[in-house]
Design a protein around this nucleic acid. Structure first.
Lengths: 140, 140
DNA sequence: TTATTTGTAGCTAATATAGTTACAAAGGTT
DNA sequence: AACCTTTGTAACTATATTAGCTACAAATAA
């Protein structure tokens, strides 16, 4: 369990919210569909809330709703909300600064990282929650 | 140490090979620049060799060379050589098949994965080892 | 007041990655 | 042939990340 499935879970969670518009959905209910623990869902919802994609309410009849309608949220926003911004990691230990390659490689890789992150964002911004929902439930 | 830095290391390694064209470079020498253990480098070179990007030779005066000139290798090939093809992971446990969302979400996410992977490939194919080398050592 | 639900701290378990040691196999050199 | 160098790879350890769990305080509705 060391692969980052936060984005996958986030999309799943948001699909659950999308099919219950204007209604508070409970973490417990979502957890059963995702097949995980409610706390995992609540942590994820915390990140989505932080990014203003969802709104939560404590207390009886509490739960979570989408902050906007599914047409107005795209997957790039979701990705940014849950990712650390790194598609690949930079070196663990710093390269040797006495080597002409080692000296500069990190800066170059860092720029490359940003370019890739941007590409992913561009691609994901083409998908709205609405469009993904139509793929998940074509009949609806 | 649980972030995947293989791509970063691979680019670093290939830069070392690019600056010593036609010469066998030893894993020990590369390891000093990357600041890691020679075995880590040799494992990485094994993957690059498998993808026909480099050629290795055992024995005295052995080492590794680029299989082609730096203009003819691009970063998409490197990425494919060392990555598992997943930008984000699918759910660890399978979603609940009794839920309309849970039932179909994995297939949709899997397609999304492929689209993103493709986007990354498109972006990375714009960079050759030569062009990256010129960023790393602008004076050369 | 009571029941319900989120938010979050703190822990455990599982997994991936890097790093290390050790050594067989390959291939030059003398 | 004997020797030295270097790769290839197996097997292990250490560390970091992620998911999952329990427990409980705070918020809120009825």
């Amino acid at each position: 369990m060391a692969a980052n499935s936060q984005f996958s879970m986030a999309v799943h969670v948001l699909m659950m919210l999308a099919r219950s518009r204007e209604e508070n959905v409970k973490s417990d209910y979502i957890a059963k569909s995702v097949n995980t623990n409610p706390v995992v869902i609540r942590r994820l919802l915390g990140q989505l809330n932080h990014a203003n994609l969802v709104v939560s309410q404590t207390g009886a009849n509490g739960g979570t709703r989408l902050a906007r309608c599914p047409k107005e949220i795209n997957l790039a926003e979701v990705y940014k909300a849950v990712s650390c911004g790194e598609v690949f990691a930079l070196h663990g230990k710093s390269p040797n600064p006495d080597c002409p390659v080692g000296k500069n490689i990190e800066a170059v890789l860092c720029n490359l990282q940003k370019e890739i992150y941007q590409s992913i964002g561009d691609k994901l911004s083409q998908f709205t929650l609405q469009s993904v929902f139509e793929m998940v439930e074509p009949a609806a």
